[in-house]
Amino acid sequence: MHDNKKLPAVVLADRIDAVIRRMTLGIGWCYVLLVLVIILQVVLRKGFSHGLIALEELQWHLYAIGVMFGLSLAQTSDAHIRVDLFHSGFRTRTKRIIEILGILLLLLPFITVIFIHSLDFVADSWRINESSSAPSGLPWRWLIKGAIPLSMALLALAVLSRLYREIVLLARGE
């Protein structure tokens, strides 16, 4: 498990991160809800021989929301897995430059591609008012698909906050 490593303070970035953390930690409660939904489904299925497809689908809806918005939480708490072998030995300045270049050349292009293409993806779903393909499944599929652009936008915000923090710290020589 990764503990939240405290990054050096930078006022604006700290504020943005705090907002993102509060939001995503709130969204994280969907996992508690997921436990309850699964238990309810087990009780209905085993106790009353009647599981509900809608509950089955609600499970992966909740899981998907937790996963997608959790990305931003992991970003602000610097929890994404790194290969530490050489990294831990680099000078702080080198680390900052790596982080800045990585964000600009690898991460932001990746987020941008997903974000742009997800807009069409959600729009299509909205246009045809897509619902589950199971007869008694959940309607409004565009709603859960909308989690992709929204979570990517939030992740971009978290990443830009980190970028700003690294640039400021680099300039300050910290």
Partner: peptide, 19 residues
């Protein structure tokens, strides 16, 4: 190679894919 820069593995994978 990029893995050893210590940038998060997930984003190295995604970014290399795009490039």
């Amino acid at each position: 190679a990029l893995l050893f820069t210590g940038f998060p593995v997930a984003w190295v994978l995604g970014g290399i894919g795009i490039i």
